[in-house]
Amino acid sequence: MSYKRTSKTSQMDFEKIVRFLSNELSDKEKDDFLSDEESGNVTGREFEQVRKIWETSSALKKYKMLDTVADWATVSSRLKPRLKQRTRKLPLTTMLYRAAIIIIIAAGLAFGLHKVTSLMSGHESIVVTTDANSREVTLPDGSLITLNKNSALRYNNRFNKNNRELFFSGEAFFDVSKNASLPFVIRTGNTTIQVLGTSFNVKEDTCALKVTVVSGRVSVYETKNRKNQVQLIRNQTASFEYATKKIIYGENSDLNFLSWKTGRFEFFKTPTADVLSTLANYFDKKLILNINLKDSITGVFENQPLNEILKEIEMTTAIKIEHGQDYIIVRK
């Protein structure tokens, strides 16, 4: 008896329930339904559960009134200045850099510098930092480094004699000159990047350090655990996640990892939202999306001002874009 009933609790009963709940039964049918229900065609508990779902769901339209994505953008911007500060350059190291610069300017205080930069085994340090603009630095070995905004590097006066080691934070493009006998070693927070002669981009992000190789061969490893290491070749990219200490690597699919240096943006069937977020990132604006974007964009922008780029995007898509000093806002 029981087996048949379980399989039968189905179609008929549920449709009756629907008609009952929709208030489409006559009084007599209602009575029949209720007595039927008691007699066990639908178990009382099952019916109550369905009724509960039915009644609760009528109040759930309100869920549409919230825009979680937009509200997260607000919350995230309230966290961001702090998140950025913490990861872009650790407050302590930033202070060390600042201290180091002042001391160099003051000159002759090499002794104090030793203490400040004891990490460098006590030799005179050369520190280069950037604030609002990027800049190029040529190292004693001829390597050319382009430092992005808010970045810093430091090396000592033995660089290119005993070693080619430097400390770095932020984002930079390294074009390293070849010297097979002196490996070029970059120390960042937890990771070390070691090369002989190549060019590649290094970026410290909120949750990971990212290395993308343009030419040559690069090894990336966790400073304290050399076994945690990957070897990258041309057009490969690796991310070292700070939280898990995992290194993930593969082919690089980011066409614009060097935009900060070249001012060139290339998009190939890129979703509009990603295009805007790339631009917002580059021009230091916060992106506010008030609609769901569906289209994608293919095209190249070369050293164009933001308003020009946005105008071109507006012309090819059906969206309206406004931008202010801090924002890019997208409307229908």
Binding site: Y3, R5, Q11, F14, V18, R45, Q49, I53
Partner: peptide, 28 residues
């Protein structure tokens, strides 16, 4: 009506899964 009853059936099954298993168990 069929679609709505289908919806209710799926919803009930997913929202009260333990009860359902228990009910089947008891029926069995």
């Amino acid at each position: 009506e069929t679609q709505i009853s289908k919806a209710l059936k799926i919803l009930r099954g997913n929202i009260y899964p333990k009860m359902l298993v228990l009910a089947c168990f008891l029926m069995a």
